[in-house]
């Protein structure tokens, strides 16, 4: 199927570079952040604009609302949706991807529809999801899971299909049952691609977390941002946006840490390959 060109948008190279970042390299990255922060701080310091409030007041709101204040509930609720939806997407994506890999007829039969669903922009499903599941927890989790499942599913299928025949022959020679070889050989061999899919799924899940809270919701960060904007509370709006950026960054950081731990063999082997003549 045509997943190959779709699925590998974020290759594992990104994480490999992140893994190599020594403290020196970390410093190279930090300086720009410091510069931007300082520029923003002083540029906006005397701002009387309603739409672009001073950074100092945004950070104050960030502290008062999100760290010590009532917006903590919104944060918790959003993170809960994200976590549940993403975990479901990951498990279902790997599970169905593996199933389709092992059942060729099912794969051939479903492949056009998978592609159809994959290209469908998930936010347009919000109205349908509301109709089916109301506006509560279930709707959001279903929407996040549905949108985020595709990168993992397609990458799992693709990664498993790409497993070297010699590795599979070897698994038979070593005496593994077909199911045993899935867990001991196929999954680890496809892991680099599955993980790349999981990373894309995470980005999609964060987007859908916010989108699902915009349209019809009574809680969550998205809900908070929209409400603040509609109530001319632009300081609150900006603080919500910054919180989202922080969530995205931290989630990605945690992901890269986990990835480097799980796939250290992969990056090690690739680095060795690179140095061999």
């Amino acid at each position: 199927m045509s997943s190959h060109d779709l699925s590998n948008a974020a290759g594992p190279g990104l994480a490999a570079r992140a893994a190599n970042s020594a403290p020196a390299r970390a410093l190279t990255r930090v300086w720009l952040f410091v510069v931007l922060f300082v520029v923003w701080w002083f540029w906006s310091a005397g701002s009387k604009s309603l739409y672009f409030p001073p950074l100092s007041s945004i950070l104050k709101a960030l502290w008062n609302q999100w760290v010590t204040g009532p917006a903590r509930a919104e944060l918790a609720s959003s993170l809960e949706h994200l976590l549940v939806g993403y975990v479901i997407a990951g498990l279902v994506g790997i599970g169905i991807g593996a199933l389709l890999w092992s059942l060729r007829y099912l794969r051939d039969a479903t492949s056009p529809y998978l592609y159809f669903l994959y290209v469908l922009p998930a936010p347009v499903l919000v109205p349908a999801a509301m109709t089916l599941f109301g506006i509560g927890f279930t709707m959001k989790v279903v929407l996040i899971a549905f949108a985020a499942v595709w990168p993992t599913l397609l990458n799992t299928l693709d990664g498993m299909r790409g497993v070297d025949q010699v590795k599979l022959d070897t698994s038979q020679v070593l005496g593994m049952s077909p199911l045993g070889s899935v867990f001991r050989v196929v999954l680890p061999a496809a892991a680099p691609q599955i993980v790349a899919g999981l990373r894309n799924s995470l980005q999609v899940a964060i987007i859908l977390m916010v989108v699902s809270e915009w349209v019809a919701s009574t809680d969550g960060i998205g809900y908070y941002i929209v409400t603040a904007q509609q109530g001319f509370d632009y300081v609150g709006m900006w603080s919500g946006i910054i919180v989202l950026a922080i969530i995205g960054t931290v989630a990605n950081l945690l992901f890269v840490l986990a990835e480097n731990r799980a796939l250290h063999w992969h990056y090690g082997a690739r680095a060795v390959e690179g140095t061999r003549p």
Binding site: V166, K167, T170, Q172, V173, G175, V185, W265, H266
Partner: peptide
Amino acid sequence: RSVPPGIGVVFQDYGRSLYPW
């Protein structure tokens, strides 16, 4: 009919038959 437990195989390409993980 399948690979019996009493057979061992060494393939040409060790890079492909050893499990790098």
